[in-house]
Amino acid sequence: MAKHRGRGIASVNYPIGMNLGGDPSQALVHSNPSGKFTVSLSSIDLGQGMKSVTRQICAETLGVPVEDVYVDTADSDTGPHCMGSFASRGTHRVGNAVMAAAKEARGVMMEAAAEELEVNAADLDTDGRGNIHVKGAPHRSISTKDVAIAAQFKQGKTISGRGIFLVPLSEVNPETGEMSPATCYAHACLVAEVEVDDETGEVAMVRMDSAYELGRALNPRLVEQQLVGGAWMGISHALFETPEPYYPDPAHGPRDFVEYLMPGPGDICPHDIAVLERPAADGPFGAKGPGEMCANPVLPAVANAIFNAVGVRMDELPITPEKVLRAIKAQGGARPQARR
């Protein structure tokens, strides 16, 4: 009876978004008379940073400080349509829609500023600090607040923009089954090291090393946060969580958090992450999205690591101690594989 260490690897080629009848999202951007901007979305921020990243995209496109942009995701009844926060599509689809809306709003803002400064809008630029000035002549400037006030009360213009981003439906070729479900792909590779106890069947995470290629990381701290948290979900799916432990028999299903197991703070392991940035041609500022891919490579890497450690191929999730122990017994004991 012993504890065996093993290492496993998995790679992921991950489509950004989905394609079931086309994949659109809309955004609306408008300025208030205060010169602050509101982005209206129906896209939901469930902690992944949708509001932060769309705020950044809007501010960058408008050429105003990020503090001057507010993102409202309050109500899908009244907001512009969004397919939803899933399939790792948020940054890419919604980000592109926000960018389009902000571009249109910026056009109106520059026209309004041009009227106030009595110049051609093409000769104007933003300084990113809340001012619009004549190119090459920074002293010939007007604040975005004064432009907003002039547009509202003098010119009778709405500084606003509409945006939609649509990945059109890709029909499946009935002969070959071919289709193009996504316009860009993110990639990941993860190595997991585990320790398997051949007496109890328990699998303990030892460490993980990963590399993620996800286009441009628009907010690197949020990307890191998603990757760290997502890898934990991967561990949880690989080793702990299930509503039906003896599927299809519903017996012994968990009824609460005491029975529905998830890794606690003592079950995690050191995880070294490298983020590689290869901007996507059709992503907002080159972004794709980390999303679901954070969790995906952990599962096969852990299963491969268990094979490397004790020689059993686990093909049902979660890989519970009971399953590992039965598999080891069935093959007549642990058979550690060559370490690579």
Partner: peptide, 11 residues
Amino acid sequence: ICRCTGYEPII
């Protein structure tokens, strides 16, 4: 229990 962070940032 935390469902999002993986505990690491909390620790």
